[in-house]
Structures are given as C-alpha cells and as structure tokens.
C-alpha cells in the first residue's frame, strides 16, 4: 500500500515537472527555455516515470525471470522499431530532397 503511495507521489512529481516546464515555456512566449533542452529533458522525465511505475506499480523487480526477460526484450524491440524507423526515414528524407543548386554538372545534363 505504501509502495503504491510512494509511486504515486514520484509519478506526480515527474508529471508536474514536465507540465510545469512546458507551462513556463509557453507562458514566456516560448522563449524561456531552449527547445533543444526541452526535447532532451522531457523524454528523460518520461523514462524516469516509466521506471518509477515499473518498480512501484508493476513490482517488476520482484517478478519471475520470464517477466523480466520479456520486459527487457520489449524495451529492445521498441527502441529498435522507433529509433530504427526514425533513423531510416529521416535518412531517406535527407537523401531524397537534395535538389541541385543551380545548373546540374555536365555529366548530369540530360542532352
């Protein structure tokens, strides 16, 4: 019971931090905190809350081996699918939107 309560408090903490930061940022006309910092810190808070809920709500450390193994495997696959897709698709985007600037070089002329 106490475990759950601690988990709630910690989760609330990270939630308030995330929303608070963005709230402040918006309030200051999107200038107070650099975007890049937010793009790093907010995901970190999300991961922190994931870990909090995994320990305090899901009680994973007390689970049996299989539960922990497939949880780890799931994290791996999620990272591969999301990260991999982002890497691949942005790479495509980058390589395909290259326009020739000015005249194409002689080898690339069509006639």
């Amino acid at each position: 019971m106490k475990h759950y309560f601690d988990g709630l408090i910690l989760s609330l903490l990270f939630t308030l931090l995330s929303f608070g930061l963005v709230g402040m940022h918006v309030h200051m006309n999107h200038t107070a905190i650099p975007h890049e910092l937010l793009y790093v810190v907010l995901p970190l808070f999300a991961v922190a809350q994931l870990l909090v809920q995994t320990v305090y709500f899901l009680h994973l450390p007390q689970g049996n081996g299989w539960n922990k193994f497939v949880y780890g495997f799931a994290i791996l696959i999620v990272v591969l699918v999301v990260g991999g897709s982002l890497w691949i698709m942005s790479n495509l985007q980058h390589n395909q939107s290259e326009m020739f600037i000015g005249e194409p070089s002689p080898e690339h002329q069509l006639d």
């Binding site: 791996l76 696959i77 591969l80 991999g84 691949i88 790479n91 495509l92 390589n95």
Partner: peptide, 21 residues
Amino acid sequence: VVLSFMVWVHHFFTMGAGADV
C-alpha cells in the same frame, strides 16, 4: 532471434537511404 530485428532494411536497400543506413 535478436539479430532478425536488426536487418530489415536489406529488403529495400534501393529505396533511397544513404550509404550509412
């Protein structure tokens, strides 16, 4: 099992990804 989730682009090498991918 693990590696089979790390090779899938070989089905579309020609789709336009760069040399690094």
